[in-house]
Structures are given as C-alpha cells and as structure tokens.
Simulated assay, not measured.
Amino acid sequence: MNSSSPAAAPPVRAPRHAPVAHLVRGGVVEGVHYGSVVVLGADGEVRLALGDPEAAFYPRSALKPLQAVALVRAGLPLDGELLSLAAASHSGEDRHLAGTRRILERAGLTEDHLRNVPDLPFDPAVRDAWVRAGRPASRLAQNCSGKHAAMLVTCRVNGWSLDDYLDPAHPLQRAVAETVEDLTGQRVARVTVDGCGAPLFSVSLHGLARAAARITTAAPGTPEARVADAVRAHAEMASGAGRDVAALMRAVPGLLAKDGFEGVQVAALPDGRAVAVKIADGANRARVPVAAAALAHAGVDPTALTAFAGEPVLGGGVPVGGVRPVPALDPAVRLAPAAVREEARTA
C-alpha cells in the first residue's frame, strides 16, 4: 500500500463540465455532449484536462477494478477468469453465471447468499432470450453478481459476517474504502449505494485515473497486478461478447479499461499513461469516441482506435454524421492544416 496519507477529499459541487463532443448531422452541430476528461502522462502529470476532473463524482462500475484490488488485498483467493469476473459488469452470458457459481462454491455458498438486487441479464440479446424462456430476474443474472460473490468469499476467508457484507461499516467495506483512498490518493468525499446495492465511493475523475495507473504499473504478483492481468487476459469475462470495453482492450495491447453507468470510462497503459472520462448526460454514444480520443491524446496510435469513433448518425438509413470529440480532444484536428482546424473550431 502507499505509505503516504491520502490528500483531502475532492470538493462536492455541481461539476463544471465543458463540451467534450458534438453530435454532427450534415455538417451542422445538432447537439452537444458536456462532460469532463483527464489525461495523465506516464509520469502522473496531467497532460489534458477538460471540464471539471477535480470535482467529486461517482465512478459507478468503473470503480470495480479498485474494489477487486481491495478484495485481493484482503485475501480473495482468485486469479484468471474468476478474478476478472470479480471486477465485472458482465452481460449475463452462461459463462458469467457459471463463473459466479464457481466463485460461490469456493466458500460453500450459493446464490441465496447474494445481496445484490435481482435483475435480468445486461446484454439485450441475452436478456431477450431469458425473457422468451420465461425466466425471472435473479441475483445471479444481475451484472454485478461476480463482484458480490467475490465479496462473500472474502468475508468467509476472513471470518467476517455474511448477511451484512454491504453495510458501509462492515470490515469488508471499510477495507474497500481504504483501498480506494490509497489508490486514488485522496479521501472519499461521499458514500452512497450503487445500483446493485453495494457501497459506492465518491472520488474525483483525476483520482480515478491515478488509481488505474497505480494498478497497471504495480509490480508483478501484487494484488494490483493480479487484477490488471486477470481483466486484460479475460476481457470478455469482465464484460461480455461484443462489448466495446473488451474490444478496446484487445485493440490496444496492455490496456486496462473499465466502463461504468452514467457515461464513465477509465483506461490505463502499463507505463502509467491513463485517461478518465465522464459524460454529463450519461450517453454511451459519447463515452466511446471521447475515451478513444483521450487515449489518442495520451499517445495511443489512432489507427488502433478507428473502430471506436462512435456510431454514425443516419439520415434515411445512410450515414450523414456522427459524434465527434471536440477539437481539443481530436488528434485528427490537432494534426490537420490550419484551415481545417479553424473550420472544426467554428463548427
């Protein structure tokens, strides 16, 4: 763990978001997505900051790699695909459900011990098949079940109580909070309840990026490195088939990436370069191209990111535009001739 004490908690305020992407149709900006972005260099210094990356916010599921590190530090005996599942927002595929059962079986537990909210599978196709089969919502199918199963196993390893493992005062959740503060380098600003029922800790976007860099640069064999290795090697177990975050990790060697509800994305490279994105309106259509542009700004080869330029805007079934990162983020604009840059700036 970091021997230095965490800095003060980030300020709780209405975030001062800025435009980060334009919705362009036929050469006209039809809409604007606001948000915040931070890009860190390998030395940990801020290379780009848009919006308000220092304000307190909730990382949602982008916090899961940090939670997984906390569990491993507390003795969670998992590696490989099951540790990846412990950090997952999974799609509810058969492998995710089977993997969650395997985690529970490690401690002689069953689905009945889970305290996450029952839900249908996250992936639309998997969910539709589930409904057609007449299957009800379940705790196992809910996208955070791997994390909850791993939390229960960690409690069993330490002799901690199981029924109240989601209480912020429980030893498990105190250990998670301590790890979040250690990795982000700042105190938690607020604690609330995430959609799955687990405690959710508010940090800054800058702190989240710093934590991701801490995880990817950790020494081999450490809890941080074990989590990073597991998620990168088993990206679909941490997400699902066809998910953009898994495709991004496959496209960029060594990248650790995690998405979160409400337009959150964090990603870090093995040398410590890291990015974090928050889209104010929670739109995935902006999250993906903005995160890709931030990675290009961090030095990732833009040709590796072309598949993440975002979905096209259609007119009559034909592409007539798309979601475009603002010029400050767009490497194509930054490298373009002056006349092109001016055209983009005034668009």
Results as ranks from 00 to 15, higher is better:
residue 7 A to W: 06
residue 239 S to A: 15
residue 309 A to I: 08
residue 205 L to T: 09
residue 44 G to M: 06
residue 280 A to H: 08
residue 252 V to T: 14
residue 320 V to H: 08
residue 32 V to M: 10
residue 292 A to V: 11
residue 273 R to L: 03
residue 233 A to M: 13
residue 1 M to W: 15
residue 283 A to I: 08
residue 175 A to T: 07
residue 46 V to S: 01
residue 193 V to A: 15
residue 228 A to E: 03
residue 237 M to E: 09
residue 12 V to D: 11
residue 277 V to T: 06
residue 338 A to M: 15
residue 266 V to K: 06
residue 114 L to R: 00
residue 237 M to T: 07
residue 225 A to S: 15
residue 155 C to P: 04
residue 257 A to M: 09
residue 202 S to F: 03
residue 176 V to G: 03
residue 22 H to Q: 08
residue 285 R to L: 10
residue 66 L to S: 04
residue 172 L to H: 04
residue 110 T to L: 13
residue 53 P to W: 03
residue 154 T to E: 07
residue 163 D to Y: 00
residue 95 R to E: 12
residue 295 L to A: 04
residue 227 V to C: 03
residue 166 L to E: 05
residue 122 F to Y: 15
residue 237 M to N: 02
residue 235 A to M: 08
residue 265 Q to Y: 14
residue 299 G to H: 05
residue 158 N to K: 09
residue 265 Q to K: 05
residue 216 T to R: 00
residue 127 R to I: 09
residue 328 A to R: 03
residue 147 K to W: 04
residue 125 A to T: 05
residue 329 L to I: 08
residue 336 A to Q: 14
residue 144 C to E: 02
residue 38 V to K: 00
residue 304 A to V: 09
residue 255 L to S: 05
residue 150 A to T: 06
residue 134 G to Q: 11
residue 125 A to V: 12
residue 261 F to E: 13
residue 323 V to W: 07
residue 250 R to V: 05
residue 186 Q to D: 14
residue 94 D to P: 07
residue 32 V to D: 05
residue 265 Q to H: 14
residue 271 D to H: 05
residue 155 C to Y: 00
residue 128 D to W: 07
residue 175 A to W: 03
residue 41 G to A: 01
residue 107 A to S: 06
residue 306 T to L: 14
residue 107 A to C: 04
residue 329 L to H: 01
residue 272 G to E: 07
residue 115 R to E: 09
residue 188 V to A: 02
residue 213 A to L: 10
residue 226 R to V: 07
residue 240 G to L: 10
residue 284 N to T: 11
residue 58 Y to K: 07
residue 276 A to W: 04
residue 323 V to P: 02
residue 161 S to E: 12
residue 65 P to R: 01
residue 268 A to D: 13
residue 285 R to G: 02
residue 147 K to F: 06
residue 177 A to F: 09
residue 121 P to W: 05
residue 152 L to T: 00
residue 91 S to T: 14
residue 261 F to I: 15
residue 265 Q to F: 13
residue 100 T to Y: 12
residue 30 E to T: 13
residue 32 V to A: 07
residue 303 T to G: 15
residue 146 G to T: 02
residue 128 D to P: 00
residue 298 A to I: 00
residue 226 R to H: 10
residue 155 C to V: 00
residue 325 P to R: 01
residue 43 D to R: 08
residue 226 R to P: 06
residue 335 L to P: 02
residue 51 G to P: 08
residue 60 R to V: 00
residue 123 D to G: 06
residue 94 D to C: 10
residue 100 T to G: 12
residue 42 A to L: 07
residue 106 R to F: 10
residue 41 G to H: 01
residue 306 T to W: 11
residue 242 G to R: 11
